[in-house]
Amino acid sequence: MSKSAASKLAEHVRRATGVDVAECYQCGKCTAGCPMARWMDVVPSQIMRLVQIGDDEAAARLLSSAAIWVCAGCLTCTQRCPKKLDPAAVIDALRELSYQQGKVPASQRKVLAFHKAFLKVVEKAGRMSEIPLTALYKMTSGDLVSDVTLAPRMLVRGKLPLVPKVVRNRRQMKRIFAACRKGDRL
């Protein structure tokens, strides 16, 4: 049996995740259980619907939505989907696409700045350390004032190591990051 023509976006999602969004019957259980739904401009069930539609307008709305960056990846939607679909994986795929195409909305620059700072630190050192991560994040996100009172308390508790641990074989790390880079983006 031949399947009905899926949208280009739906086809991309299917290849990236194995999820055929045509199977979604819009019950809304993903939205119902989503802990982040109240902060989303497009709720999970609408994300699935827009991928089904998949035209330029739908794709533009999805890839520049805050929602895909607000998703915490908690998998509650996937756990309870009565159609055994994986909305969390669909959102993952959209996020990567949004980043690749430079469509991340301004409202999510903090989230993006954090992820980028995190990967930068890992690329340079092979491991994440709190001080370089926080410093880089604060510089790139402009979020300078938050949590300043926490740092001394973390320091006291040994939770801010002053000497970061690093990977010895940094060439290998460099090679991995270079191979995964698409254009100028990771």
């Binding site: 996020r95 980043y99 074989n169 995964c180 990771l186």
Partner: peptide, 17 residues
């Protein structure tokens, strides 16, 4: 000589990474 698993950041920006 283990390295970072990439955590949520890699997962969000690059599936390969």
């Amino acid at each position: 000589d283990w390295n970072c698993c990439g955590a949520t950041a890699a997962h969000n920006l690059s599936h390969d990474l």
